[in-house]
Design a protein around this nucleic acid. Sequence first.
RNA 1: GCGUUCGUAGCUCAACUGGAUAGAGCGCCUGACUUCGGAUCAGGAGGUUGAGGGUUCAAAUCCUUCCGGGCGCACCA
Length: 574
Amino acid sequence: MNIFENYLSQIIKLIKLNKDVLKLQNLDNLKNVNLEVPPAHINFDLSTNISLVLSKANKINPNNLANNIKDLLLDKITHFDKIEVAGPGFLNIKLSKEGIISNINDIFKNRDVYGSKKSNEKYNIEFVSANPTGPMHVGHCRGAIFGDVLSNLLLFNGNDVVKEYYINDYGNQIKNFVESVYLRLREIKFKEKFVAKEHLYPGNYIKDIASKIIKKNENIKINNFKDSFEKLKELSLEGSMLLIKNDLKQLGIVHDNFFSETNLVKKDLVNKAVKELQSKNYVEKGYLDPPKGELTKDWKKIKRLIFKSTTFGDDTDRALQKNDGTWTYFANDVAYHSDKINRKFNKLINILGADHTGYIKRISAAVTALSDKKVELNCKVCQLVKLYKDGKPFKMSKRAGDFISVQDLLKEVNKDSIRFMMLSRSNDVELDFDFDKVKEKTKDNPVYYVQYAYARINSIIKTLDKNLSDNIIINSESFNLNEYEKKILRKIFEWPKIVESASYKFEPHKIPFYLYELSTLFHSYWSKGNEDENFKFIEKGKIKRSESLSFIYLIAIVIKNGMKILGVSTPEKM
RNA sequence: GCGUUCGUAGCUCAACUGGAUAGAGCGCCUGACUUCGGAUCAGGAGGUUGAGGGUUCAAAUCCUUCCGGGCGCACCA
C-alpha cells in the first residue's frame, strides 16, 4: 500500500465513523475523493479534494466542512502535523516528523518493489507480430519497445503476463516471400538471373536466407515451386524468424510465446471458432454491401459467411470467407483470439501500428462475442516514428528495399538510448526520432541525464565506502530536512502514483518523464554544494548529515526501479 | 463521405481516470568550472490550451457544432 492509499483509506474511515458529527447524509460519491501531490508552488506534502466532493452531495458549504474535517484529521491521525484549507476547499496536509520517517523506512523496507501495486490479473500481451518476411525495421521498433515495457510494468505489479508474437505465416505475402527465396536459390544453384518483379522481395537478406538454406540442405529440390513449397516455406520462415528474434534480442526484448497462424489453420481452430460464433448466433450467410470509400476493382457480390460485428458497434459486418470460400485473415485472427480466451487470459492487450487502427472495432467485437463480454481486449495504437538525420526527414521505402533496419539503427545508437527515446512520447502521438540527438551524451539526450544522476549517486556511495544495498538507519532525534529535500521527498512519494497511472491506462511513457524530473531534482540538489559549502554532502571522506545520505539512497532506489521497468541499464560509472 | 486520432509557449511535448497560479526540454537572453565527476547548475523572457457554445463550486480534460493535420476505410495481410 502506498502513502496515498494508506492515508486516504484512513481519512475515509474517519469520515464514515464521524458521519453524523460532520452532518453528512450522503456518502455515495466517496469514490471520487482523491489524495494527491499538491501543485509545486504549495508547500505541503499531500492534498485532498474531500470536502469539495462531499459538500456537493450534501449541499453544504465546502469551507465549513473543510474546517471540520481538518480538526478531525489533526485530532485522529498522528502522522498529520499541519493542515490548511485552501482555495475553494482543498485540504493541504503536512506530515509530522514521525510520519515522514515512517514512510521513508517503508521505502527502504520495500526497495526493489517500492512503487508496485499488487494486482493479480492474467494478461496476454501481443506485440511486434511483424510479418515474417524479413528483418525488423525502425517502424516496428516503437511498438516492440512499448509492448515490452508495458509487460515489465504489469509484471512489476505482480501480474501474470505472457508476451506473445503472432507469426503471420499464412497467405499471399508468405507465398511471395517463399517465391523470392526460391528464385534466389535457383540463382545460386542454376545461375539463373533473378528478375525483380512487383510482388517479389528485393532485399539482400533474401539471398542470405537462400545461401544458408543451401548450406544446410545441399540436396534440396527446387525444380518446381509448387512441389518444393511446403519444405521451402518451413526453411525460409526459419531463416526470417531467426533474423527477427535476433533483432528483438538486441533490443532487449524476449517473447514468451510465438504463435503460428499456419498451425491455427492446420489444427482446424478456425472452423471451431466460427462454429462457436455461429452457435451464439453472430454469424450469417449473406451479402455484404460494397465498400463506401474509393471504388475497389475486385469486389464481388457473393454469398458468404459474415460475422455480425455491427452488433458490437463495428461500422459494418465483416467477411469470414474470401471469394474462393477459404478463410479471411480476420477469420484466422478470430480463431487466434478465441484460443487466447481458451487459455484463460482475462486481460488481452494488442499493440498495433497506426495503420491497423481501423481493425480494432472488429477484433474487439469478436472477443466480446466469443467471451460473452467477460474478457476485455485493449488495443493500443503506436503512431508513426518520423526519422530525422542532419535535421532533415529521412524517408524509407520498403518496396525499394531501402528501409532502415533495426540493425542499421543499432550500429549507430545503443539499446538504452533507443528504448528511452521511443518511450519519451505518449503512444498516440507521432514521434520524432532524431539520429543525431540520440547519439549525444548531453542533457538533450534524456537517457544520459538519468543515468548520470545514478552514476553520480554511486560515486558518492563509493567515496563513503558504502554499498547501495546497505541498510540506512535514520536518526529521528536530529532528523531535519531542508527545502530541497522536502521537494525531493514529495517526488519520491509520488513514484507509486506514477506506476499506478501508467499501468492503469497502459501508458508507460509516464515513467521516463518522471525519471527525468526526479533526476533534475537530484542534479540541482547536488549542485547546491557548488554554490554553498554548507550543502556539500561529504567532508573529509565522511557524510555530513545522515539525512542527505538517506536521500541519495532513496533517489537511487527509485531510479533503479524505474529504469528496470524501462529495460534501460543503470551503470555505476559513466 | 464514414470511422479514428491529435491540435497546449517560436519548436518538440507533459499535465496523475474534472482541481488551485497550465509545466518541462530545445531555441533565445544573463550568470556559475584551481569541480564532493560541468555528461551539470542558477536566473530571465515566452500562453485567450485551434474557434464558438454547453455541463459545474471547478474544464486543456466531459458534451456539442465548426476549423485544421495524421492514420484507416477489400473479400489483401
